[in-house]
Write a protein that binds this DNA or RNA. Structure first.
Length: 110
DNA sequence: AAATTGACGGGTG
DNA sequence: CCACCCGCCAATT
């Protein structure tokens, strides 16, 4: 695996229980703001084999983005089990549950 | 080296 | 709110 992949994996592995991050956010923290799709790709090939908390990653709207029905349900259950509220559309309130690692300086957010 | 892959994101109408 | 399109990017084939 290449370094970018490793970064993404470490970031995802670092999402605490009860929190979520978006694909775009993970991509950005890993070093490429627009590499959200890499995160998707990586999860496709690595999620289970690395025991990653893949369920803590949602899309920019806070929705569960997984395609397979069973997996969406599983993700929803995992999140709810950690205290993350998920509505009937599989949507999470990012303003409440999105994880921001060391959000020390929140100036204007660029 | 070119094509493919993807669970995305933002913009537009 | 929804449908659609297009840009994006690194790993894989």
């Amino acid at each position: 695996m290449q370094s970018y992949t490793r970064r993404v994996i470490e970031i995802i592995a670092g999402i605490p229980e009860g929190c979520v991050m978006t694909y775009g956010q993970v991509a950005e923290l890993a070093g490429s703001r627009r590499a959200a799709r890499q995160v998707v790709r990586i999860l496709h090939s690595m999620s289970d084999s690395h025991g990653l908390p893949w369920h803590r990653v949602v899309n920019a709207k806070g929705e569960i983005a997984v395609r397979d029905e069973e997996s969406r349900l599983l993700q929803s259950l995992y999140l709810q089990g950690e205290g993350v509220a998920v509505d009937d559309r599989g949507c999470v309130d990012l303003s409440k549950f999105q994880f921001w690692p060391e959000v020390k300086e929140v100036r204007g957010m660029d």
